[in-house]
Amino acid sequence: MAPSPISEFIDPADSSLDEQWKSVLARKVVPAGTRQVKFVPCEVVLSLCASLLVDHHKYGSTSAHRAEYPVQHLSRLFKRPPSSFLAKMANLDGSRSHGGRHEMEVSTHLLSDSTMMQDVYLRILRSARRQGIDRQQLPDFLDLEDGGALWLVGQEELVESEIEKSLEGILEKRAREQDDVPLELTQRLLTATVRIGQHRFAQGVLANHQHRCVFCGLSGIIAGERRPRMLTASHIKPWRDSTGKERLDNRNGFTACPTHDVAFDTGLITVDSDLNVHYSPGIESDMTIEAPLRAALGKPPLADKLILPDVAVRPDVVYLDWHRTQIFVAS
């Protein structure tokens, strides 16, 4: 069967979406071991959107039932096993050797234009609501229905040239495995995948620290609304110096307001293994004569020790030691 035109994924008509949802609602559960029904376009797009929250690489066929929100909701609604959605995510990011070029093109279009992705996501949800599918059955897992905006967090830490360098070996391997896929398409998709991984990392760090700066306690929720640019979630050991595993490790991240994020990244402050905050030499003496510096880096607003919620996972000492020996301006 020929794939649906790409317009069905990136610019679907309301009438087409309504028909897709009607077919989903009429769908029956397919017995285990039986071939699943074909994904409809809205289902593919929701799988891609879910990848902003879920790393499919963490799960195998026997652990798919543990995949986090919203995989289980999608599984119940679309009457297919969670493993099907995780496999679709692998198709969409090109990491599945038997995945189709068509779905990689869909991913590249939507991931390269967040406005387009948000628009399609909202159209899909509006159509679902017209068919009587409520938020319990299909939750607004990107938090966009009430006027939010799609925002990939943590991107300020990434540099295009560093991404390209990190992808050299992977790009060559993919080119050999998928010789029918243009190299430019693969490169664009791999770059988008890195950015999504950074987004998931940053989201995890922000959640771990309950959206507050670990150095001064500033909240990213102001006047009842989340203000994404008021906080950053970046690596303790920088992305460019980290391995692939370290780049996704929430223990390698701090939530910080922009001022204290820069102060830490440039080595003006550091954190020891007991989570005490230390100044680089000369900072404290400068603060006695520089009121703006004192207002930014004095104690307060800086705390003597990292401000962590009781339930937070502590940063790994390995990353703190790396920062103190490689970044901190000790003399």
Rank of each mutant, 00 (worst) to 15 (best):
Y121N: 03
R176D: 13
D140L: 08
A233C: 06
T193H: 02
N276K: 14
L138D: 04
C257M: 08
G94A: 06
Q178G: 05
S7F: 04
F9S: 14
C257Q: 07
L218C: 04
S285K: 10
L189W: 05
S127C: 05
Q178I: 05
A330E: 15
V311C: 13
R247Q: 10
R174M: 04
D265K: 13
A312E: 02
M230D: 08
E246S: 03
G217I: 11
V106R: 00
S280H: 07
A32H: 11
L190H: 10
L52M: 12
T243D: 07
G60Y: 05
T34C: 12
S161I: 14
A202S: 12
Q178W: 01
R76K: 10
G94K: 01
G267C: 07
H73R: 13
A223N: 12
I133D: 00
H109W: 08
R227I: 08
S242E: 03
E105D: 02
Y319S: 00
H57I: 15
P300Q: 08
S107W: 02
Q198F: 00
Q131R: 03
A312F: 02
S166P: 05
S16L: 04
R174T: 13
T259F: 13
I196F: 00
A50Q: 04
V37D: 07
V106C: 00
S273H: 14
K28A: 11
H56A: 15
A256G: 13
Q198C: 06
I283C: 10
P300Y: 02
W151E: 09
Y319F: 10
G147S: 11
R188L: 12
V271Q: 06
Y279T: 14
M104T: 06
I133V: 14
L150N: 03
Q72L: 04
D134H: 06
S331K: 08
S161A: 13
D304V: 15
R176H: 09
V37I: 11
Q36S: 05
W239K: 02
R76H: 10
G60T: 15
H109Q: 13
H102V: 05
E105K: 04
S234T: 14
L189T: 13
L308N: 13
R80N: 07
G204A: 08
V277E: 03
R229V: 10
S285P: 01
K165Q: 15
P3F: 02
V262D: 15
M116G: 03
D134W: 01
K165N: 12
E105A: 04
P70S: 03
L92E: 09
P315Y: 00
K79S: 01
A64G: 14
E172S: 11
D249M: 05
R247K: 14
D55E: 10
V37M: 06
H323N: 06
E19H: 04
A291V: 13
R76E: 14
P41G: 06
Y69M: 09
D18I: 06
N208Q: 01
L306W: 07
K299V: 11
E172D: 14
Q20H: 04
L144T: 12
F78I: 07
E164K: 10
F39K: 04
H57A: 15
V106E: 03
G60V: 11
S242Y: 00
W21Q: 00
K88P: 05
T186H: 07
S161T: 15
I6P: 05
Q155M: 10
R129D: 03
S47K: 04
L293H: 04
S114M: 14
R176I: 10
M287L: 03
R130Y: 00
L320Y: 00
D261R: 12
L171W: 01
K38V: 13
E225N: 01
N252P: 11
